[in-house]
Simulated scan of single mutants.
Amino acid sequence: MQNSEAMALSTALLAAAGELTKRIHAGVVARGFEGLRPAHGFAFARLAPDGATATDLAAHLGVTKQAAGQLVDEMVRKGYVERRPHPVDARARLVVLTERGWACTRAAEEAAAEAVRPWAELLGEEGTGRLRAQLTRLAPHGPLRPVW
């Protein structure tokens, strides 16, 4: 693959990811969950289903422990998460989604379905399945994190 072709592919993938993030975020806000940034959604993805420590969240988001702690503090103030005693490590606190956090996560799932619906209409069911399979092969486990 020529450099120009690789750059064109990279640009197209980044544009699609950016547009998808923007549309999901707009859908979440439209469903009444204000005061959030896309970074919150990436945090929610790590916290669901079993919670995580702030250290786990920092590694997932690619930020410092202090930045993750500040994000957790903000999400606690807004009622999206709560800190609980860690079931195994007495020194750690587990950050888990509250009912409001789960409701926001469900709103994001609905917004994601709306956001990719035009892709499915354009590519068809078979094409959409192939796209999902190929993207999963390229990035089987992420990372699923914001671009800072």
Rank of each mutant, 00 (worst) to 15 (best):
M1G: 15
N3Y: 08
N3A: 13
N3M: 10
S4D: 12
E5G: 00
L9M: 13
L9I: 13
T11N: 11
A12K: 10
L14F: 10
A15K: 11
A16K: 04
G18C: 03
E19Q: 13
T21H: 07
I24P: 02
I24S: 00
I24N: 01
H25Y: 13
A26G: 11
G27R: 04
V28T: 04
V28Y: 03
V29Y: 02
V29F: 04
R31P: 01
R31V: 00
G32Q: 07
G32N: 07
G32Y: 09
F33I: 03
F33K: 01
E34Q: 14
G35F: 11
H40P: 00
G41T: 03
G41V: 03
R46K: 15
L47V: 09
A48M: 08
P49Q: 10
D50C: 05
G51A: 09
T53K: 03
T53V: 06
A54H: 04
T55H: 09
D56W: 03
D56G: 12
D56F: 07
L57Y: 05
L57I: 10
A58N: 06
A58W: 03
H60E: 05
G62E: 06
G62I: 06
G62Q: 07
V63N: 01
T64L: 07
T64V: 04
T64Y: 04
K65G: 14
K65Q: 10
Q66I: 11
A67E: 12
G69C: 04
Q70D: 11
Q70A: 14
V72D: 00
D73Y: 09
E74F: 08
E74Y: 10
E74N: 10
M75I: 07
V76E: 14
R77H: 11
G79W: 07
E82V: 12
E82T: 11
R83A: 09
R83N: 02
H86K: 07
P87D: 03
D89N: 15
A90G: 04
A92P: 01
A92I: 02
R93P: 00
R93I: 00
V95S: 01
V95Y: 02
V95G: 00
V95E: 00
V96E: 06
V96I: 14
V96H: 02
L97D: 02
E99G: 08
E99I: 05
G101H: 03
W102Q: 12
W102S: 04
A103D: 14
T105M: 11
A107T: 03
E110N: 05
E110R: 14
A111N: 05
A112R: 11
E114L: 12
V116H: 01
R117Q: 12
P118M: 09
W119D: 03
W119F: 14
A120N: 02
L122W: 11
L123R: 04
E125Q: 12
E126H: 09
G127A: 07
T128I: 02
R130Q: 12
L131A: 15
L131Q: 02
R132A: 13
A133Q: 12
Q134F: 10
Q134T: 11
L135M: 15
T136H: 12
T136Y: 05
L138C: 09
L138V: 05
L138I: 06
P140Q: 09
H141I: 06
H141K: 08
G142C: 10
L144S: 10
R145C: 09
P146L: 07
W148Q: 06
W148P: 15
